[in-house]
Design a protein around this nucleic acid. Structure first.
Lengths: 349, 349
DNA sequence: ACATTCAGCACAATCGATATTGCATAACGC
DNA sequence: GCGTTATGCAATATCGATTGTGCTGAATGT
């Protein structure tokens, strides 16, 4: 009975109900009052449609209406705490608006980003959220040509509105926390704070370096170039650089600002080779948050970017119908370590 | 010049090139040789299309061909290491096949799952990957009625093929590791291994409990009901239960099998209140893997489910064109701790 | 009683692609 | 030189919805 017949269409329902396809369409998509279809007719059609398990072919509807009901988001990777919580928020907000979210990752590959944006546009997405793009303006041009509203998250574009985390503020908070908490060591080199990880070509990292530099200079009078090691995001590279730094200093520095979770993961690979007491005179901070990161052998101050607020602001912006290339800032939060401070730091909690 | 005009269609290209829309279509979708379009004509059309920035309207194509080029995947949540790495694999494999991945999360809500499957079917997804469904068979019925091939990942369905992680094997490996590594304590209660977290209604957890029970019985002769505390996946619940257990035992047990990362996160909230030496006579294992989890204050054995292999097997199954309700098993890996064992376990590495 | 309004619905065009069929002209065989 | 096959392309129907327009009969007005 319920064999593998095809999905019913409005034409099937029309035949069964004795009404015309256009009447069926109106009855089923909610426009029947405006189209002056009698209530009895509409109800009858709806009943039959339910019995038949009808659901609209959204490709056909999208084709006709030139809107698909899809919202696209592109991000570098899924398996990253920051981006995956953005996905989560993105999807929740999309559902609230009755839209279907399409999330695609592009592995930070410029070609892949362009291809993906083109694909999503070919599916007629109604709007597009872009995060972690390597070349925002190239993507904007494509979207503008196709008349697709789009917004950048966490990385500003010149040709479209952007919602970004306040990287300067976050890095300033974290830097200040590190500087104020870290021990005063006799060794002038070990006694300083170091910044490791990230790429200064990257917008976010550049702002963070800037804030680190400013805060260190403000608190300690000056800063040396070798205190900033922007060695990229790859864990392996961070492992090497942290090791090299510690070898050079003869131990962990008094303060360490790790930029990004991936760099942090790399640093950890080296840290696990150290004895626990090595961390007794070192204060570590990490830009970006991972709940497990807060539970390590040693305390770690973390900055949590408010991904839900980033997404919410972006949706609000679309809802308002504006398309100016505004820049909206969202403040990140400084999360205290959950690990108890030990040794000489016990009193600092 | 490049104002906000609409995207060009094959009709626009047809006018510009002097050819008919059908010829343009053939020239642009690669079927021109089979349709006996002259090479010169095809090349000319392609050139014009490129100049005009043409790209096909995939909704129209999908409508006509009754295939959309979309593959859907539904999962409980994005912001979870296991599921987000599945997303990553799912997407990579989809791209390899020239398909567009649509990933939707359903928050383990049965109603939401059904709605989502229906939505994806309305967008005419060519196939569907389902993971973490609460009621697989209900979803299968919908897919079967709509003639959509689908496959379950990590949770078997009766009406469709499934690729599942070998939970029994993984839990057996982890249980055995814990039992063989844990200290022999005088206290008979503390000296045993405990299982905490998860829900026995859940397929995966049930298999894991079964393996834990079997292994403990095999190694120590018997097992008591209070050694298994399936208190769900919520972190808060795990925090309370672990605390209650430790209060009852007067300390951490010799062995603890934590089922799922979320339960582990909950347990950690309690662990951080303990002094470091509390872990000296306790061996901890966690089913599921998180790189940071491997770097904690104390060693943790973790089971990593091979998400990429799960997805790869599922695609292979579709590629083969089979649709029998087979059950394919994928072996998980036991990951040793990266933290160095301290105190009396130093020699166990 | 006749013009006007309006409710209730059907008809047909349309969105942008694909796929089948058919119609020219050219090439070929004998 | 005439039928036959090939070649190159245009015409047209179609996918499943939406939407502007047109037609009918009943209600209303005067």
């Amino acid at each position: 009975m319920t064999g593998s017949r095809q999905k019913p269409t409005i034409y099937d329902i029309a035949k069964l109900s004795g009404a015309s396809p256009s009447t069926v369409s109106a009855a089923l998509n909610g426009t029947w009052k405006a189209r002056r279809i009698g209530e009895k007719t509409a109800k009858k059609i709806q009943k039959i449609a339910t019995q038949q398990g009808y659901s609209a072919n959204l490709q056909a509807r999208g084709l006709r209406k030139a809107r698909s009901g899809l919202v696209g988001m592109i991000l570098p990777v899924h398996d990253n705490r920051f981006f995956s919580s953005m996905s989560q928020s993105f999807e929740a907000h999309a559902r609230d608006r009755g839209l279907c979210p399409v999330i695609a990752s592009t592995l930070r590959d410029p070609q892949e980003e362009i291809r993906t944006v083109e694909t999503l546009i070919s599916y007629a997405v109604d709007s597009l959220f872009i995060t972690g793009a390597t070349n925002p303006d190239a993507l904007s041009e494509i979207c503008i040509a196709a008349n697709v509203p789009h917004i950048y998250i966490d990385l500003p574009g010149k040709l479209a509105p952007s919602v970004v985390s306040d990287n300067h503020l976050g890095a300033e908070l974290l830097s200040r926390k590190i500087l104020q908490t870290m021990p005063k060591l006799d060794d002038p080199l070990r006694g300083r704070a170091y910044f490791i990880g990230g790429d200064t070509d990257d917008y976010a990292s550049a702002r963070r370096v800037e804030a680190f530099r400013k805060t260190v200079t403000h608190e300690s009078g000056d800063i040396s170039g070798d205190q900033i090691i922007a060695c990229g995001y790859a864990p392996g590279q961070a492992t090497r650089e942290v090791k090299a730094l510690c070898d050079r200093l003869g131990g962990l520095p008094a303060g360490l600002f790790v930029n990004s979770l991936t760099a942090f993961e790399g640093a950890l690979s080296y840290f696990v080779t150290l004895p626990p007491q090595a961390f007794d005179d070192c204060v570590i901070g990490c830009y970006d948050y991972d709940p497990f990161g807060a539970f390590l052998q040693f305390p770690v101050h973390m900055v949590r970017q408010n991904s839900d607020k980033l997404i919410a602001r972006a949706y609000e912006y679309f809802d308002a119908g504006t398309t100016k290339a505004d820049l909206i800032m969202v403040e990140p939060d400084l999360i205290p370590p959950r690990t108890i401070y030990k040794g000489r730091f016990a009193e600092l909690g």
